[in-house]
């Protein structure tokens, strides 16, 4: 006769040596309500290698009784979810250590960046003061050479060609977004022409396939025409991407 065996869930591990608690769920017929109901029973099961973890689904097999409550042993592990979780937990701890370092680095970088900007603004202000002094003619001939040296130093530091200059010396977040907005508006205005050229002209076929393979998982030949058009439109209207069609 085959040995009695069940399939159950490991609910407790690590509290007793070489023993786990396995919950087995069975259906029994209840005579009073004439219906099958679920019944649970917990078994203490022998685990020689101590490999089971809480959450594993295992098959247990009956063995000769080895202690007061132990008469089953682990036959096989069907789903090793508990072991997986234990591994993930261990890995997460290791990954956390790396992450801590990078967070500290980010914080320091941000501080450095701000400090640099403050220094730069101060330097530019100094440059303004010096150039004003020159123009107003309050500089003595002896002090002139020293001031020129200072100006040259600041100019070299921020690679400024001439002062006062018409070029932007500090990049503002506002001006960046303004530039992006200009690009988007321009492309949106001419979107029909751009899409028409990209989809139909032979010269752009290479660029078209390049963009479509980047955006879609399917091979290009299988993508329907309207989807291709939508994908291309999305790509072009993103100001970070370069428009392949010159207007």
């Amino acid at each position: 006769m085959a040995k009695q065996n069940f399939i159950g869930l490991v609910v407790s591990q690590g509290k007793m040596s070489k023993t786990v608690k396995v919950r087995v769920q069975t259906k029994t017929y209840n005579k009073k309500i004439h219906k099958e109901v679920l019944k649970r029973k917990d078994y203490l099961v022998h685990d020689q290698g101590e490999i089971c973890r809480e959450g594993d689904i295992v098959r247990i097999e009956s063995i000769p009784k080895i202690s007061a409550r132990k008469y089953f042993a682990i036959a096989e592990i069907k789903v090793n979810k508990g072991q997986q979780f234990a591994r993930y937990e261990q890995e997460a701890k290791e990954r956390l250590a790396d992450r801590e370092q990078s967070i500290l680095q980010e914080f320091l970088d941000r501080k450095d960046r701000t400090d640099n900007i403050i220094v730069q603004v101060e330097d530019l202000r100094k440059l303004d003061q010096i150039s004003h002094n020159f123009q107003s003619g309050t500089v003595t001939p002896e002090g002139k050479e020293e001031l020129i040296a200072q100006i040259e130093e600041i100019k070299a530091k921020y690679s400024i060609k001439s002062w006062p200059t018409t070029e932007p010396v500090l990049s503002l977040e506002v001006s960046e977004t303004e530039k992006d907005l200009g690009v988007i508006e321009n492309r949106a205005k001419n979107i029909k022409i751009i899409l028409d050229k990209l989809l139909n002209e032979e010269g752009y076929s290479q660029e078209r396939t390049k963009i479509l393979t980047l955006l879609s998982k399917r091979p290009v030949s299988e993508i329907p025409a309207f989807t291709q058009k939508n994908l291309l439109r999305k790509y072009i209207l993103n100001p970070e991407n370069e428009c392949p069609v010159t207007l």
């Binding site: 914080f107 941000r110 501080k111 960046r113 701000t114 900007i117 403050i118 603004v121 530019l124 202000r125 500090l170 503002l172 977040e173 506002v174």
Partner: peptide, 26 residues
């Protein structure tokens, strides 16, 4: 630390941008 950090200003401003803008205003 981020909340205490002086590079973050109130109402979503950052120190960098404010410095640049005020320089422009000057």
């Amino acid at each position: 630390q981020y909340l205490k950090d002086t590079t973050n200003l109130a109402q979503g401003f950052t120190r960098e941008e404010v410095e640049k803008l005020l320089y422009g205003a000057e």
